[in-house]
């Protein structure tokens, strides 16, 4: 992909990556979070940039194992801001960023655990008064306190933005995939423990959290004034089953049928 080219003009850039605990969608095992890992990958491909990783959370064995996933990408240390399990990590992170004063903060768009509303980067940006952009695909160059970046849009499109540093950028799954996490460096990587007061997130207690229910599939609603039409729609045989096979047709007829399907599905732009 042409847009994943390494940027060369990021020498001396100080990049902080906020990383969180991920959970595998099928087995719920803890791991490095996919988008956060992509953010780390993005930071590591910025040539000459110094990269530091920051995690706010509880110090638990299982969590530590997951964070080691980031260390395995070739990172020496991760700064761990210790927080209680019900804490709102925004103040602690904002403080740490204010102290660390990185020029660029990268993180995933949305966490894989907890509320996962994806608001945290915006709250940090608001707290720090920094601009924030989403869907970072590549950093093209950094000069005079301005970064030229590419933003990923749906379906592989890109938009070029110029943004004033320091800034926060979120990375989603359209960013290049994270490199493999190697076992050796992951095991040897170190944690730097930072203490911070925990501000308890009061609202959480009022919420009810349960495993996700399957969302009901929307029925095709036919709102028609005529009962006959409504009946016809309701009694119509569900399509599916065996498909339609067109043999002995001219290429044009075949093409017309395919064209109709493509148009119905809305994939022709």
């Amino acid at each position: 992909m042409p847009h994943n080219a390494k940027s060369t003009a990021s020498v001396g850039l100080n990049v902080a990556v906020l990383v969180s605990i991920g959970r595998h969608p099928l087995t719920a095992r803890t791991r490095r979070a996919d988008q956060d890992a992509r953010a780390v990958e993005m930071a590591l491909t910025l040539e000459g940039a110094s990269v530091s990783l920051l995690h706010a959370g509880q110090q638990e064995h299982e969590h530590e194992e997951a964070i080691r996933g980031y260390l395995g990408m070739g990172i020496d240390t991760v700064s761990l801001i210790q927080q209680q399990s019900q804490a709102d990590v925004v103040p602690a992170l904002a403080n740490a960023l204010r102290t660390g004063a990185p020029q660029l903060v990268l993180t995933g768009t949305r966490a894989e655990t907890g509320e996962a509303s994806g608001v945290l980067p915006y709250l940090l940006a608001e707290a720090l008064g920094w601009p924030i952009i989403t869907g970072l695909a590549a950093v093209e160059k950094v000069e005079q306190g301005m970064a030229t970046v590419l933003q990923a849009l749906p379906r592989g499109k890109r938009r070029r933005l110029r943004i004033r540093l320091p800034a926060i950028a979120t990375v989603d799954s359209s960013a290049p995939a994270a490199r493999q996490s190697a076992f050796g460096p992951a095991k040897r990587g170190a944690f730097e423990h930072l203490d911070a007061t925990s501000e308890i997130d009061e609202a959480l207690a009022a919420w009810q959290v349960q495993p996700a229910r399957k969302r009901p599939k929307r029925l095709k609603i036919v709102k028609s004034s005529s009962a006959r039409d409504r009946f016809k729609a309701a009694a119509a045989k569900a399509d599916g089953g065996s498909g339609q096979t067109l043999s002995d047709v001219t290429p044009e007829q075949g093409a017309e049928a395919i064209f109709k399907l493509l148009k119905e599905e809305g994939v022709l732009r």
Partner: peptide, 18 residues
């Protein structure tokens, strides 16, 4: 040590772990 299993290797190993 390198974390450099080529092609689908990394994905397969991640799957095995998860």
């Amino acid at each position: 040590e390198h974390g450099n299993t080529p092609n689908k290797g990394a994905e397969v190993l991640d799957n095995l772990i998860a």
